[in-house]
Design a protein around this nucleic acid. Sequence first.
DNA 1: ACGCTTTTGTGAACGGATGCACAAAGTCAC
DNA 2: GTGACTTTGTGCATCCGTTCACAAAAGCGT
Lengths: 234, 234
Amino acid sequence: MSADPSARRGIPDATVARLPEYLRALTGFAERGITSVSSEELAAAAGVRSAKLRKDLSHLGSYGVRGVGYEVDHLAYQISRELGLTQDWPVAIIGMGNLGHALAAYSGFATRGFRVVALLDQDSHLLGQEIAGITVQPMDALTSLAEQGLAIGVIATPAASAQDVCDQLVAVGVRSILNFAPCVLVVPEDVDVRKVDLSTELQILAFHEQRRALAAEGALEHVTLEPINSAVGR
Amino acid sequence: MSADPSARRGIPDATVARLPEYLRALTGFAERGITSVSSEELAAAAGVRSAKLRKDLSHLGSYGVRGVGYEVDHLAYQISRELGLTQDWPVAIIGMGNLGHALAAYSGFATRGFRVVALLDQDSHLLGQEIAGITVQPMDALTSLAEQGLAIGVIATPAASAQDVCDQLVAVGVRSILNFAPCVLVVPEDVDVRKVDLSTELQILAFHEQRRALAAEGALEHVTLEPINSAVGR
DNA sequence: ACGCTTTTGTGAACGGATGCACAAAGTCAC
DNA sequence: GTGACTTTGTGCATCCGTTCACAAAAGCGT
Ligand SMILES: NC(=O)c1ccc[n+]([C@@H]2O[C@H](COP(=O)([O-])OP(=O)(O)OC[C@H]3O[C@@H](n4cnc5c(N)ncnc54)[C@H](O)[C@@H]3O)[C@@H](O)[C@H]2O)c1
Ligand SMILES: NC(=O)c1ccc[n+]([C@@H]2O[C@H](COP(=O)([O-])OP(=O)(O)OC[C@H]3O[C@@H](n4cnc5c(N)ncnc54)[C@H](O)[C@@H]3O)[C@@H](O)[C@H]2O)c1
């Protein structure tokens, strides 16, 4: 489609979900000093088929060169831009228990695009304590954070408190929420919630594990089993 | 279709991925003493449409009663059985850094179906240390763990070590792996890898956040924006 | 006993995502 | 400058998942 800007809109969700993996693979190539990759090489590094990669990239524009491939830096920039990583998004983490501590210490945030601007908790024993160089604040700090442009809220409280915390985030205008608590959050339709759920993933693994176990003992003789390397879900 | 057992096989991946959420919702109803739910009520609690819920459940068999709904305990049992949660799966966590510590302390594992049987790390300073009541062991403990039937490996090491750890797990026969490291793992086709990736999720949130920001400033006048509450990915 | 109400289970239509296969487009060697 | 070679971008067919809409099934009241 070449560089028609009007065609650059409406990128499929499935494609958006894979862009971060492509970006990571490109960063890896760049670190090894590789300046150009073919769709075949990049797809292998990202764990997808090359046709899928090319179709995904075609939604962003036409950044490849036929007969050659893609320029690593340029493609990485284009994907970053599309994902909105050329600016820094202020992030607040709510709930500084075991998981909240690990998240606060996690360097992956700062890497690019995100900046942890606040750690919040309800527990008065934690307030004022410093974690990874940031002082833990009470929940009512949310209002002033929102005024300073808080973009993303990360919920790391127990499930019982998650909806309450979510409502507070929505109330101050946060429209992007990442939820680690194992529960469904109810939000207005203009708010985007994504869930990271350990126990769901384990249960999906258990399902396949059981299938293999049953197949091994011959209980599922008439069932094809092999094609396991799938994803879906998330 | 009723109770034809041969039709009970081949549950779609998308359905399997939602079963844990249904199970969680059912557990919630059971805790509140509710013994019977309609597909409408259960779907609302799980955050899906009732038609989708009914189609999903129809893949497991015919456990509802027309005009009434589903018996909470019975349906929960059927889903548990389908997911393989009526037995306990031995889990090992590899990499006891910030995240590994949080995971080891996490009560969600023990809740049902999973038992953390070992914590492993390469770092000699951590060996012998006790975390959440379990002693940290060196990597070569994997062999004997495998002999005792280790089913699932959870990788919580840095990305640079993840493929190496993964290979060791596969070598001793582990075929279900949950990967927290931000990288693609290469495995034989009979091994099932699922990924929990914080930064991918954040980047997807950033994409939608940017879309909203651009739309607000009128740069995308001709683009419909509203339908955000989507998932995909994972 | 019977008809009215409720809710399931599912056939059919739809839409989005994936995989295939190839023409178009560009590079590079000479 | 030309021709052979490489790799992209995409039309098309297929597959999978979602949604709609309703007939069949069960309970309930009378
Ligand atoms: N620990 C893990 O490895 C892990 C893994 C996956 C999911 N999770 C989930 O993440 C969440 C946090 O887990 P955790 O182990 O850190 O729990 P935790 O109990 O250690 O910490 C929870 C923190 O949230 C705070 N909190 C509670 N209610 C609050 C409220 N209304 N407002 C603000 N703060 C509040 C508490 O003070 C506490 O500090 C849980 O929902 C858990 O299921 C944890
Ligand atoms: N901390 C978080 O909140 C967070 C969130 C998302 C993802 N992650 C990812 O999870 C992983 C772990 O994060 P972390 O913050 O706990 O890191 P960390 O550096 O604190 O801990 C890593 C641990 O792995 C051990 N290790 C390294 N190589 C090993 C090997 N070959 N075999 C066995 N053990 C080995 C180290 O000794 C260390 O104890 C990283 O890949 C990180 O990107 C972390």
